[in-house]
Amino acid sequence: MNTYLELLFLFAMAVIGGAVNVTIGGGWFIIFPSLIFRGIQPVQGTATTTIVLLSGFVASSKKIKNTGEISKTHFNYMLSACTLGGILGAVLLIVFSHKVFETIAPFLLLGSWILFTFYNRIFNLFNSDNQLVTSFKCTPVKLISLFVLGIYGGYFGAGMGMLLFILFRFYGIKNNETLERVSLILIAVNNGIAVLIFIWSGLIFWPFALVMTAGSILGGFLGKAWNEKINTLLLKRNAIVYGATVTLYFLDII
């Protein structure tokens, strides 16, 4: 493929991925395969995908002023646990051999696709019967669960936002605005610290990352602007089919 056509292709895929990511989620299924298709190794592709999607996600998000019913002290505990998990996850991606990641990545994709496809059912299944909490308090178990989820976010990260929503809803937070605020900050910091480690380790493929980051940011803004005009049900159905195709490809089934 001609170099200019290659960059145009990646830019276009990043615009689509950024828009999808801020509307229905699942941008990973668009950005990651695009990089692999252009010859990037899976580990480097994961690192590059993280910085591409994070850029569009953060740039198009609203400024967070408070964390709702979660006190600043308890939120700092949560943030610390998720950040430490992100550091460990990023280090594991670097330290483990590429063969290990290439072996488990298809199954992580499969798990992400299942989560994306059946998210509403899973979300309702884990919905706590508790009333809306007025003062969310951290416990060691909650912090450990955030730490483990943070490891996943730093190592792979696809679907982390959905997992955070499910986890916090299970713990009794029913205010969607609080869920969005907390998830946004935790994902930004978790992925952000992972990106810094990836940059330091030289895992980011910058020629593609710069072009796709610009596309992801544009896509994020377009997705936010057109969100109410988009048929999200139809979009998600198409995304499910596309995600299934990508997953089956990486599982060597098709």
Rank of each mutant, 00 (worst) to 15 (best):
F147H: 10
N176K: 10
K99R: 14
M162P: 01
K236F: 06
K142Q: 10
F147L: 10
S55N: 04
G25Y: 01
E180W: 00
G56W: 02
T117M: 11
N190Q: 07
W28E: 09
S183G: 05
L110K: 01
E228F: 05
V189P: 01
T134E: 14
Y249G: 01
H98E: 15
V189Y: 06
I51T: 03
Y242S: 11
F101S: 01
L108T: 05
G172K: 07
I254K: 08
P42L: 08
L7G: 10
V246Q: 04
N227S: 12
I240T: 15
M1V: 15
E228T: 13
G27I: 02
N190P: 01
T139Q: 05
F170V: 02
F198V: 04
K62P: 11
Y155W: 00
M13S: 14
C138M: 14
V91T: 09
E102W: 02
I16V: 14
A81R: 09
G89N: 01
F32Q: 12
T50E: 02
G153L: 00
P42D: 06
T48Y: 05
I144R: 08
P42W: 09
L53T: 03
N130P: 01
N130W: 08
T139Y: 03
Q44V: 03
M13P: 06
Y171G: 03
L10T: 14
I230K: 08
K224D: 06
K174G: 08
L79W: 05
T247R: 13
A209N: 07
K174N: 09
T49I: 02
Y77A: 02
A244T: 15
T247M: 15
E177H: 11
A194T: 06
F205Y: 13
N227M: 14
F101G: 00
W28P: 01
Y77R: 09
L218Q: 00
I151K: 09
I144P: 00
Q41E: 12
Q131Y: 13
G219F: 05
L109W: 04
K99P: 00
R169K: 10
I230C: 07
V15C: 12
G192E: 04
L110G: 04
E69H: 12
G223F: 03
K224A: 14
I253S: 03
L10H: 07
T49C: 11
G111S: 13
G18D: 11
F75S: 07
S34W: 12
Q41I: 14
L10E: 13
L167V: 03
E102K: 15
Y155V: 00
I122G: 11
N127Q: 14
N175E: 14
A244L: 15
I87A: 04
G85H: 03
I94C: 04
N120S: 14
F118G: 12
K137I: 07
